[in-house]
Amino acid sequence: MDALLKLAAVLTLLWGGWMYFKNSDSETELRKVRNELKVSKGEVGEAQASYEAEVKKRDALAEEVNALKEQNQQLEKDIRAKIKEKSERAAQERRDRLAAEEEAREERRKAREAELAKAKEERDAKWKQEEEEERKRQEEEDAKQEEEDAKYAAERAAERERSASQWQSEECKQKIKSANVKMQRYLSCRAYDPGDVQDYGRIDLLKKKWTLNVQACLKAANDGNRKKLKAASKALRDTANGLNSMSGGKNAGCLSDAAEVIEAAETIIDATKQLKKLNLQGR
């Protein structure tokens, strides 16, 4: 009993001691792991602090990035607004310039129209004045021309008259001259054919008488004495009839010659009379 009790005491003491040491080890281990826990807690805190710092940094960066984005967006908006404003200002300036040009063009057009109207009025007035002057000048010229025409017509008429009278004078002179020449040719009885006539004395007498009668006709004609011409013509016809009858009607040519002579003498008288008349008109 005693031994068992002692064994139990020893065993319980051993168990108690072992528990004590075990507990001691556990306590030591516990302190150790608690220290480790403390360290790890510190590391967690550091990591947390680091993470928070990084988060703050990230947030700050994100804010800056967002701010930059907003600023850039604002800048882009400003640029667009400025470009728009500039384009609008340019468009407005262009519109103003076009309006000013249009206004200036309109003013120039009005001024040109006014100038044209004024020029037209002046031109019309000038034309009217010129027309008036031209009309007056034309009237004067017409009057002058009419006067000149009348004068020219008068001159032409006078000239024609002069020419006509001159021509007539010349004609008369020519007639007188040719008549004289013609009568000179009939001074000898050219047409006489003696035939079988025997009375030569009488024939010679009649031939001389013919010559004398022709000379009388010529003188009467040149003197313009129609009475003497009438008498001389009668004598010349009688002489011609005498010559014809003596030859038995074979000298009818003497009659026609006598008629020619008488006609020439009358022509001389008429032409001389007309010539005198023309000379009187010419003066």
Partner: peptide, 16 residues
């Protein structure tokens, strides 16, 4: 002693 050892061991056991 045995009782004390039992209680002490038990105590340290529980503590451990």
């Amino acid at each position: 002693v045995i009782i004390a050892a039992i209680f002490g061991g038990r105590y340290y056991y529980s503590q451990s």
